[in-house]
Design a protein around this nucleic acid. Structure first.
Lengths: 159, 159
DNA sequence: TATTGTTATACTCTATAACTATA
DNA sequence: TATAGTTATAGAGTATAACAATA
């Protein structure tokens, strides 16, 4: 293929008039837009310099265990909308990383209280900085009132 | 730091008030709310009478192949934000279901054009009705202007 | 060299059922 | 009986690398 054809094709592709895919009703669907927003958010987050590897679930556990020392696994699961069966492996991983410990409750011996270790506290502080930095980049796209309204509208979807 | 978070943290859990988990900054994060909204949307969708089992990716392929007969796999992947490697298995499944067929392009023999079969057309029409029904239930939570603004704000997140 | 489709791999996420020990 | 945690399993989703055929 010669250079001219290559250049023309590149123009076609970037200008988008190649096929101009018809998205039909997709852009009008809440589910489609929520999904795309989450994909965009997630990709941009992972494309960051990636000093740390963190997933939403793990970050949520660290945050909740930091704010609620001794919180039970089932409570973490409820708040983060993670099944209690899947919470086990998540806690296992964090425990193997040395970031949390399980402590059996004396009052109710069924409950495993989750506590951050010193290393977990440090990890949480670092991760929180990363998350807030990422949040700041996305929040730049909105005015304060727009951001507030977006959060409000999203939260109404979970009622 | 954050005065609100500090104040919230001061409200400690007691044995009688186990449900009052401190969420700290989570409710203020776009990522957290996007994630929760998608989980809520997905759970409610799956909890429907489930006449049909449909996933977002598969529905997207059917819709795009319906609106763009002969669309290439790589174009489907780009529009739906699915990796082309993962698109293969998705198309495989739809082809095994008898809903789509691959047709090698004559102009560019690298391209596999995706076309709906008659069964695929019927399936698409049925699934579209289900999706729109589901969409209607969620849209009820918003006024028309709120819904438009929510879509607009979400789309800005993907730019 | 670049693109399209493909295989292979690995890890994450989600959902469900069944089990235990405690209440 | 009900709850908290666990194990096991299976199906999706996601990301990456490498390859063949084609451009």
């Amino acid at each position: 293929m010669n250079g001219i054809a290559r250049a023309r094709r590149a123009v076609r592709r970037t200008s988008g008039d190649r096929k101009a895919i018809d998205l039909d009703i997709l852009p009008s669907l809440l589910g489609f837009n929520i999904r795309r927003a989450q994909i965009a958010l997630w990709r941009r987050f992972n494309r960051g310099d990636a000093e740390v590897d963190i997933k939403p679930g793990a970050f949520g556990v660290l945050l909740l265990a930091h704010a609620n020392p001794g919180v039970a696994q089932v409570e973490l699961a409820q708040e983060l909308h993670i099944d209690k069966a899947n919470m086990v492996a998540l806690i296992d991983k964090l425990e193997n990383q040395g970031w949390v410990v399980r402590k059996r409750s004396g009052e109710d011996r069924r409950r495993q209280g989750i506590h951050l270790t010193a290393a977990g506290q440090r990890a949480y502080r670092m991760l929180k900085r990363t998350v807030l930095e990422h949040e700041k980049n996305f929040a730049l796209r909105y005015s304060d009132s727009e951001r507030v309204q977006l959060l409000s509208l999203l939260q109404r979807m979970c009622v």
